[in-house]
Amino acid sequence: MSLKEGLKESQVERYAGGFFALFSIALYFFVIPWQIRRVAGASPSPRSFPLAITATVFALSASLFVSGWHKRNREDQKVYLLSAEELKLAGATLLVMGAYTALLYAFSYVPVTIVVLAVLIRLYGQRTWWKLGVTAIVLPPLIFAAFTYLLKLRLP
């Protein structure tokens, strides 16, 4: 299986069903007992609702897995195409936004936003330099002014 061939519906159902089944087991036996303290005499206890939902997620995941298993030989399945370009751009956007957030701990809003806007506009394929420049340089001070003076809200 390669990215270009995509994933068949039955594969997606089996993988997602398997993943969520394991996820719900981990939640039920490890994460919830670790993260939610037992309260003596509490009925229903703070754990009851999350545990009930987790059990439901497990039951649904198992049904999804079984449904995928039954469909595995069907010819007319929907194919989920995973375009490399799409993944690359979505991943790059997330990376840039992560870096943007991290930089805001150290630098002020306007200069960081100018750089981030310029990077994103270029990343998305804008070749006209004046459009890139105008958008990246004019907008951040405007947003900053609108939030600071109109909405009385200080940005980082």
Binding site: T93, Y100, L117, G125, Q126, L139
Partner: peptide, 15 residues
């Protein structure tokens, strides 16, 4: 152009 719109939306989401 979406190449200009989407970056601006990213910034607005953060703000």
């Amino acid at each position: 152009e979406s190449t200009l719109i989407y970056p601006v939306v990213c910034v607005f989401c953060l703000v």
